[in-house]
C-alpha cells in the first residue's frame, strides 16, 4: 500500500504547554482514519502540522514525499474555523476554488449546496455558523485529491443534520483517497472509520483497525473511547 502521509517523531510544544509529543504514524491510500481525543489532546495541532500551518520543534512530516508546504495541491483541508472572507458569497468562493485548484468540481459543489439547502448568491456573513460550516464542507469535498483532512467537520452542526454531513462526505470523497477526520463526537461517525488514532495529551494512546477492536473487545469505538479517557485511566503527564 502506498503511503500518503508519513509522520515521523513529530513534536511541537507551545512554550511550557504540550502540543504533540514524538508522534509517528503513516496513512496509506484509501484509508479513512479517525483522529480522536478530547479537546486539548493535540488533534488540531497535529492537523496544522500536517498542513504546514505550524512548524514542528522536531520530527518530520511528508505528504507523498513532499514537505507540507509543497503539498497543498494534494490536500483538501477543512479547518476548525471557517476561513472565507465574510464579504464573499458562495459564488465568489467557487471562483477562488476554481482559480486555485484544478481539481475543483463545481457541479459537485453545487449539488452539495443543494443538499444542504444553501443559496449560491447568499453572502457568508448572513449565514448561521452551521450553514457556514456546511458551505465550507461543500467546497472542500468537491475537490478531487489524494488526501482529505477534516478538522471537526461536525463541530457546529446540530445532531439532526450530522447524518447528512456524513453521507455527503461518503458520497463525495474520491474512492482510493485517504481521509483523516478529527472529532470528539465518536458515536456519530464510527461507522465511517477503517482505523482510529486516539490522542491523549499530545501522545498516541491507541492506533488500531476498528473492526479488529470491535472483534477483540466486543465494544463500540465510542465505548472504548469512554473507557480509555475515564478518570483514573489517563496516562499521567
Amino acid at each position: 500500500m502506498t503511503k500518503v502521509v508519513e509522520v515521523k517523531g513529530i513534536t511541537r510544544n507551545y512554550g511550557a504547554r504540550r502540543g504533540v509529543d514524538t508522534i509517528s504514524f503513516s496513512l496509506v491510500e484509501g484509508e479513512i482514519v479517525g483522529l480522536l481525543g478530547p479537546n486539548g489532546s493535540g488533534k488540531t495541532t497535529l492537523i496544522k502540522l500536517i498542513m504546514g500551518l505550524l512548524q514542528p520543534d522536531s520530527g518530520e512530516i511528508t505528504i507523498r514525499g513532499l514537505a507540507p508546504m509543497q503539498a497543498h495541491a494534494l490536500i483538501s483541508y477543512l479547518p476548525e474555523n471557517t476561513y472565507l472572507g465574510d464579504w464573499m458569497t458562495m459564488e465568489e468562493a467557487f471562483r477562488v476554488f476554481e482559480d486555485f485548484y484544478a481539481d475543483f468540481d463545481q457541479v459537485k459543489a453545487l449539488s452539495m449546496l443543494d443538499d444542504f439547502d444553501l443559496e449560491v448568491r447568499q453572502p457568508l456573513k448572513t449565514m448561521s455558523k452551521g450553514m457556514q460550516e456546511k458551505a465550507h464542507l461543500a467546497l472542500v469535498m468537491s475537490r478531487n485529491v489524494p488526501l482529505y483532512v477534516l478538522d471537526e467537520p461536525m463541530g457546529g452542526i446540530d445532531p439532526a443534520a450530522r447524518q447528512t454531513i456524513l453521507e455527503s462526505i461518503l458520497q463525495n470523497y474520491n474512492p482510493g483517497s485517504t481521509l483523516l477526520l478529527s472529532t470528539h463526537l465518536i458515536s456519530d461517525v464510527e461507522m465511517l472509520f477503517d482505523r482510529v488514532i486516539f490522542l491523549d495529551q499530545g501522545y498516541v494512546r491507541l492506533d488500531r483497525q476498528v473492526e479488529e477492536l470491535r472483534a477483540e473487545t466486543g465494544k463500540s469505538i465510542d465505548n472504548i473511547f469512554r473507557e480509555l479517557y475515564a478518570p483514573g485511566m489517563r496516562r499521567k503527564a
Binding site: G30, E31, I32, Q163, L166, E167, L170, Q171, P175, M191, L192, F193, D194, E211
Partner: peptide, 11 residues
C-alpha cells in the same frame, strides 16, 4: 451499499 448503510466502502 456503503452509501445506503452509511458505512465505510472498505468495510
Amino acid at each position: 451499499v456503503a452509501l445506503a448503510y452509511g458505512v465505510n466502502p472498505n468495510t
